[in-house]
């Protein structure tokens, strides 16, 4: 009894912080989503709207487009980062010249704030100022203008995110690889397994918990990306890189449409949870092997 009370007392600060920073804002957003509330409407007070905001979402082409773009962005960056990150982690398990230097340089992007990453990429890509459009045009005759060509803008945003976050994937997978017991691998080699078999049947299953954690973190980050995209493209050209985070920001702040923005936020949260859950189920499903 006494130890239980002590335990709760020790947990109390955390619970209080969690309630204030997590639970209460969530409840506030949930309540707001059932109201029409725009500060600059004829009636600036919240008006009960029942589920209208959620109904609007289903028919909102801009919102649906931003969801689609976000999912596409998430898929591209996730697959790229996991593939490259895994390859680099495996590479760093071996010895090679300048390994420490490479590891330090490779990790540098992680230390830069997303807003600064976006600003740096913008400086590099603005026509008339940035080196990338200049050299692409002079060396290859490519007209590189993020603000004009949607495909270039989308690809650049994906590349920027890969550049920024692959080191995170590398580091977490490297930590996982370092802790793997070497005996099963050695045993497999003795039994004549080749490298592909070792990777596919031993390393990958053993890395599943680390991979799953890394993928979840990256999915959640990718679904809520805002700052670096805002700096690089501001969601343009048109709305071709207006991912859901940016879209919600525009609805909630410049448009001050709080009710509708809250509904969008909730739906996005729901979507994130569903995606993570589906992925979890898919990755942890036991494979039944024929005897």
């Amino acid at each position: 009894m006494r130890s239980s009370t002590t335990g709760w007392l020790l947990l109390l600060p955390t619970i209080v912080i969690l309630v204030f920073t997590g639970v209460m804002p969530f409840i506030y957003v949930l309540l707001t989503s059932f109201f029409d509330w725009n500060l600059f409407a004829v009636n600036p007070e919240p008006q009960w709207a029942a589920a209208n905001n959620f109904r609007r979402l289903v028919h909102d082409a801009e919102f649906l487009k931003s969801i689609w773009l976000t999912l596409k962005f998430t898929l591209y960056v996730l697959v790229s980062q996991v593939a490259i990150g895994f390859a680099l982690a495996r590479l760093m398990m071996r010895d090679f010249p300048f390994k420490k230097f490479f590891r330090a340089v490779h990790t540098l992007p992680l230390m830069i704030a997303p807003i600064a990453v976006g600003a740096t990429w913008r400086l590099m890509t603005v026509p008339g100022l940035g080196p990338i459009p200049y050299y692409l045009k002079n060396w290859f005759g490519i007209d590189y203008r993020l603000s004009m060509f949607p495909d270039q803008a989308f690809a650049s945003v994906v590349l920027m995110d890969i550049w920024h976050w692959t080191p995170f994937v590398t580091l977490t997978l490297l930590a996982g690889l370092s802790n793997l017991p070497q005996e099963p691998v050695e045993q497999a080699r003795i039994d004549g397994a080749n490298e592909v078999q070792i990777f596919w049947d031993i390393i990958l299953p053993a890395m599943k918990p680390v991979l799953l954690t890394t993928i979840f973190i990256r999915i959640m980050d990718a679904l809520r990306v805002v700052d670096e995209v805002w700096m690089l493209t501001q969601g343009g050209p048109g709305a071709e890189t207006r991912f859901i985070g940016l879209h919600i920001w525009k609805i909630v702040f410049p448009k001050t449409d709080y009710g509708y923005g809250s509904a969008m936020s909730l739906l996005t949260l729901y979507l994130t949870i569903v995606i993570c859950w589906l992925l979890y189920v898919a990755m942890t499903a036991r494979k039944e092997r024929p005897l």
């Binding site: 409407a41 004009m148 048109g238 525009k250 001050t256």
Partner: peptide, 22 residues
């Protein structure tokens, strides 16, 4: 217009789409 920002934000995407030829 008290609704300056609201109408601007609602309509600006169409100017953007026209700029890129969509």
């Amino acid at each position: 217009y008290p609704f300056h920002n609201q109408v601007r934000e609602a309509t600006a995407p169409f100017i953007y789409e026209a700029i890129i030829g969509n």
